[in-house]
Nucleic acid binder design. Structure first.
Lengths: 197, 197
DNA sequence: TTCATTTCTTATCCTACATCAATGCGTTAT
DNA sequence: ATAACGCATTGATGTAGGATAAGAAATGAA
C-alpha cells in the first residue's frame, strides 16, 4: 500500500521501520485514474502527495486559456502547491494524472510530525525544499536565456524517461512552446544528427 | 551599523533586543560601491546578505554573453544564492551593487543560531523561503504565458519603486526582453493611456 | 475489423520581439 | 565649456516561434 513510500523514507530520509510505522496511521492512499484531478485552480491545496506509482502533472491555465505545465511528478516524487498549503491561499494550479496513478496523501502536519519523530527527516525535507528552489531558479534562467532547441535538449537530458512516456504536446507545454514548434525542433535536430554521422 | 537589520528582526521575526545583541557579534557589515561585486559566477556563495541601504542585483550571463537579471534587492531585502550556500556548489550568478550599498553579512550558521535563540526566527525564515518559492513559481508562469507588455505591467505594479530607481535596460533584462523592446512597449502603453482619457 | 479520437507532422503565412544602426540627451570627467 | 560615455528612443530589417489548416499515424473503442 505504502510500499514505495516506506522504502523511500527509510532510504532517503533515514527513518527506521518502527518510526515509519508510527507515521503510517496518518497516511491515506488514493488511486487516481488517467485524467482525474487531485487539485484544481482556485482550491486551497491541503496536502502533499507522494507518487507511489504512475505519473502526475501540474499546470496552470492563463488568461487566454492556454495550459502551461509547471511540473511532472513520476514515481517517487513529491508534488504539492507549497504556497497554497503554507499560506492557505487558493492555488493557481491543476494537478492531474497523466496515467493511472496511486498516491500517498500527506496532510499538512506530516512534515512536522515526522521531523519530531526523527530530525533527519526534517533535514531531508530541507534538501527537497532547496532542490525545489534550485530547479525553479534554473528554469527561470533557461526561459530567460535559452532557445526552444536548447531547452528541449536540456529537457531530454534531465528527464530521459519522461521524454518517452509523456505526449509531446505536454513537453512542448512544459518548455513554453507549441507542439508544432517542438515537432520542428525535433526534425531539425534529427537532420543535424544525420548529417554529423 | 546594523540599525535597519535590528529593527527588521525585532519587527518581523519577533526577536527581542537582547536576543539581537546575542547575535550581533557574529555579524559583519560591508559597504559596496556601485558596480562592485559581492559574488561572481563560479564562486561558492558563503553568505546571505541583508541590504541595510542601497540596491543590489543578481544576474547570470548565458552562453551567448547576455545578462539576465534574476533578482533585485532593495533596502530590507535578503539576498543570497541559497543553492550555492546549501549544496556548497559554484554559483551561476553575479551579485552586484546598482547603487552604493551597505549590507549586513550573515554567515552560514546564522539562521540555525538565530532559530535556536528564538524559534520564531526559524518560523520567519520559513515564511521567507516559502515566499521565495511562490515568487519563482509566479515568474516561471509569467515567462511561459505572458507577453512582454503584460510582464512589464506586472513588474511596475509589483515593484513601483524600482521602476523609478533602476535603469530601463535592467528592467528589460529582468523581463527577458531587449531595452529596445521595452522602450516600444512603454511607448505603446503611453499612447493607449493617452487615448483612453 | 472499422470507425473515432488523439497525437504528430508538414506547409504556409503571420507576429512579437530581436538585431543593427543612427540620433539625441543627460551626466560625469577633463 | 566640451568631450565622452551611458542610456533611451526610433527606424529598418530579420527571425524564431505562433496560428491555422490539413493530412498521416497512432491509439483506442465498439
Amino acid at each position: 500500500m505504502f510500499e514505495n513510500f516506506k522504502i523511500y523514507l527509510i532510504e532517503k530520509a533515514g527513518l527506521t521501520e518502527e518510526e515509519f510505522n508510527q507515521l503510517s496511521p496518518t497516511l491515506q492512499t488514493k488511486v487516481v485514474s488517467k485524467g482525474d484531478f487531485l487539485l484544481k485552480q482556485g482550491e486551497i491545496c491541503q496536502h502533499s502527495f507522494f507518487v507511489e506509482k504512475g505519473l502526475l502533472r501540474s499546470y496552470s491555465i492563463d488568461l487566454t486559456g492556454k495550459e502551461h505545465i509547471i511540473q511532472f511528478a513520476p514515481q517517487n516524487w513529491f508534488i504539492s502547491d507549497r504556497s497554497s498549503v503554507y499560506f492557505n491561499e487558493p492555488s493557481d494550479f491543476f494537478m492531474e494524472a497523466i496515467e493511472e496513478t496511486s498516491v500517498v496523501i500527506l496532510n499538512k502536519n506530516f512534515i512536522t510530525l515526522a521531523s519530531e519523530i526523527n530530525p533527519s527527516f526534517g533535514q531531508y525535507n530541507e534538501v527537497l525544499l532547496q532542490n525545489h528552489i534550485r530547479q525553479l531558479q534554473k528554469r527561470v534562467n533557461q526561459l530567460l536565456g535559452a532557445s526552444a532547441e536548447m531547452r528541449y535538449l536540456n529537457f531530454i537530458q534531465l528527464y530521459p524517461d519522461l521524454t518517452l512516456r509523456v505526449p509531446q504536446w505536454m513537453i512542448a507545454s512544459y518548455l513554453g512552446i507549441t507542439p508544432e514548434s517542438l515537432s520542428r525542433v525535433r526534425k531539425e535536430l534529427a537532420s543535424k544528427n544525420f548529417k554529423s554521422k
